[in-house]
Amino acid sequence: MELHRPPPFRSGGRGRSCFQKPFLVQAKRLQGLEKANTRQGKQSPEQLKKRAPLTPGTVSPPLPVPGHILRPPYVGKKDAPEIASEIQMHDKESIVHMKAACELAARVLEYAGTLVKPSVTTDEIDKSVHKMIIDAGAYPSPLGYGGFPKSVCTSVNECICHGIPDSRKLQDGDIINIDVTVYLNGYHGDTSKTFLCGEVDEGSKRLVKVTEECMLRAISACKHGTSFKKIGRRISEHAGRHGFGVVEQFVGHGVGRIFHSEPIIYHQRNNMPGQMVEGQTFTIEPALTMGSIECNMWDDGWTAVTTDGSLAAQFEHTILITKTGAEILTKC
């Protein structure tokens, strides 16, 4: 579950701007960010007309969590916590706990993917995921984070991220990102994946494939002593090569005992300082689009959609930095 970094300004449009989004990262806009003026992968007007715009459905009440399950400290508080400035480092003991949380998150995500079928509602996916998490003795981290009402994020088609599960039925040809974070024994494991629903067109499949490749290419560059800006460079190069844009407003983050902390991980080209250190854990979670990389916010305060209605895809892993590389903790 990613953080939001505000740009210096945002144009209007349907709903609120992404500047008002929760998960606010108080950071100045980077110098030298590169935006593609054209998108080779952009959907044609005919393609957009074939697919009905995403509209909100009915959101059911939050699901209960048994009292014996450990809750994160932000549960029950109205506002999301500030982004922690500490860098979350791990010793042998805490790595065991991180791996357990991440392994559970990965299993839950893979199970959620098996539920993606035409006519299934995102609310049904949320209920099934919620049950699997609490049956494992864990807490669904999104539930109650800054008022988020559900146990998982389900982002369909032009929704970039943080879609709230509701009564909307998935349609044949949809793509859907499911973002799972679990809190197990005091540690968060965070991962997401974009799934195909039914018969999906080749352009959408290519967007999903390239987005996953961007994430994996970025991870392959990570190891002790590597500059964080190499992540954004790897992602931008591969996305641009295929004609897709990289959304700049949403970033990866440190994760562990705290849900969201430093370091902030930028997915586009940037000049931010800092190097990776052995024992760190953080997420890499690029979101790519076929068209505009700008977003609008729905009135629910969470759902971020592309301004032009073009498709978006996202993938996420939690990784552990080692001397020689990066271990993917949320890999099944």
Rank of each mutant, 00 (worst) to 15 (best):
T191M: 11
A313G: 01
G57A: 07
R206H: 13
N296C: 04
K331L: 12
Q249R: 10
I265K: 04
R241L: 13
R233C: 01
H188L: 07
H260D: 06
S94M: 07
T330C: 12
E278C: 10
Q314H: 11
A80R: 13
G76S: 04
F23P: 01
I219F: 06
P72G: 06
V246R: 00
K117C: 02
C18F: 13
M215K: 08
K229H: 08
F315W: 08
V210L: 03
R241H: 14
T307E: 10
T191Q: 05
L70H: 11
T211R: 04
T307H: 05
T322R: 02
T322K: 05
A312V: 00
N270W: 07
G67E: 15
G301A: 03
L48I: 11
H224C: 06
M297H: 12
D91C: 00
D79F: 15
K99P: 03
G147S: 03
H68V: 13
L109I: 04
Q314F: 07
T283H: 07
P81W: 10
Q314M: 15
H267W: 05
E213W: 09
Q268F: 14
P286D: 03
V75H: 15
E212D: 11
G309R: 05
P73Y: 12
G252Y: 13
S17K: 07
P8T: 09
V208Y: 01
V210A: 03
G32P: 09
T194E: 03
L63E: 08
R71I: 06
K229P: 00
E327N: 02
P140A: 02
I319A: 02
H4R: 15
E46F: 13
G76H: 10
K117D: 07
S167H: 12
G144K: 02
G325S: 12
C197K: 04
A221P: 02
V152W: 08
R257M: 13
G279K: 04
I164Y: 13
E46Q: 14
K77M: 11
D135L: 02
P142C: 04
V75I: 14
T58P: 06
V120E: 09
H224K: 13
S236F: 09
T330F: 12
V25Y: 03
F19T: 10
V25Q: 01
K169R: 12
V152D: 08
H317R: 14
E46Y: 12
C18I: 11
H90A: 00
T38V: 15
T322A: 00
D300E: 05
P72Y: 06
E93R: 07
R29V: 15
S292T: 04
K150M: 05
T154F: 11
Y183F: 15
Y183T: 07
Y145N: 04
A112H: 13
L115G: 02
R29E: 15
S151I: 05
E82R: 09
R16K: 15
F19Y: 12
M132I: 08
P149D: 01
Q20M: 14
H162L: 05
E82V: 08
R233V: 04
I87G: 01
Q171T: 10
S236E: 08
C153T: 12
Q314A: 10
I265E: 00
A84E: 13
T55G: 09
L329S: 01
V208Q: 01
